[in-house]
Design a protein around this nucleic acid. Structure first.
Lengths: 173, 173
DNA sequence: CATGGCATGTAATTTGTTACATGATTTC
DNA sequence: GAAATCATGTAACAAATTACATGCCATG
């Protein structure tokens, strides 16, 4: 996907550190990507060399200085051009689902905790998103948060149905 | 994710060609992965060398012979062990969503066709899935198809809401 | 007779993850 | 006083995409 544009886009709106970008990704862009530091920092360095972002150093005693990046004029142009192109199609990997698809071998009563764990995770995501929605004012960004909320809710409902079905089959003593 | 297990799992149930695997992935496992030939064939070759699948050649005149793979006993063991491990978390890349998130620059009336196109795609997926559900009898596999159906429906609803909102703002002549 | 489906593959490149390394400050 | 958060990064490796190359057969 090239996380380049993600960075360019976020920094265009609000200068931040690499750490902040990662946090933002984790908190609200889970439905877009899960880019980790190992992707983000090197990309940031490349963008800096290319002059598409600039950087302001804030010294911290004893530690590497904090680095606040922002998108340059050149970076804005690059971003703008990319935005006009049609989007590449989604890339998805869901190991969880694959296991469910293939797991004839796993008995239902071992499946239930798996589903439960998954539901807990998704419900946690839901909460974070709901909070984040409160702090967001740009309508486009709210739409995207709504997208994530919608999908999370749908998944939770699906999990509930499944847990119920399996629960009946197994626990219907 | 290692598509190794996907292959092992599919071939454990039904011997197939690499082409068939790809087709299956495309038709029903879109929510799991979109592994392409470039991933599938090399993985198949590795599994063959490792003795986790075996292969039966069916000659075709003038063309490379058709190769039907099946999971071996050894492959089944490997698969089984993997199934017992906890699943890695999802990996997601949605360029479409990222653009929406970042696209202040794009005016609403250019956004509408984008959303419309996306909805058309998702609706097409929905149809394929519904058909596939008819031909599927293993309940676990039906659950997974239902997962995809659920998410697709949720996305379509979200798209409808958005199109409506934007349509009002823009077309409210 | 053209389009799409069937069927195989390779190679270069891009991309991304994981694990590691470091350490202060804030919160419970 | 422990745990989480803030904050930087690198290196080795694994994974996956894209584009290419080939060509028959069936359907409309």
């Amino acid at each position: 996907m090239s996380h380049k544009y993600l960075i360019l886009g976020l920094l265009a709106e609000q200068p931040m550190t690499g750490y902040d970008i990662r946090k933002h990704v984790k908190d609200v862009l889970g439905a877009v990507t899960n880019a980790s530091y190992g992707t983000l920092y090197p990309t940031l360095h490349k963008l800096l060399s290319a002059g598409e972002v600039n950087m302001q150093e804030v010294p911290r005693r004893g530690r590497p200085s904090k680095k606040i990046y922002a998108t340059t004029e050149k970076g804005l142009q690059v971003l703008d051009e990319w935005l006009r192109q049609p989007a590449a199609s989604d890339q998805i990997k869901r190991e969880f689902l694959l296991k469910l698809y293939l797991a004839k071998a796993i008995p239902d009563h071992q499946l239930l905790p798996m589903l439960r764990a998954r539901r807990d995770e998704t419900e946690a995501t839901l909460k974070t998103l709901a909070d984040e929605k409160q702090n967001t004012h740009d309508p486009r960004r709210i739409w995207v948060i709504d997208y994530s909320l919608t999908l999370a809710l749908a998944e939770i409902e699906w999990l509930r149905r499944l847990e119920h079905t399996i629960g009946l089959a197994y626990g219907g003593s």
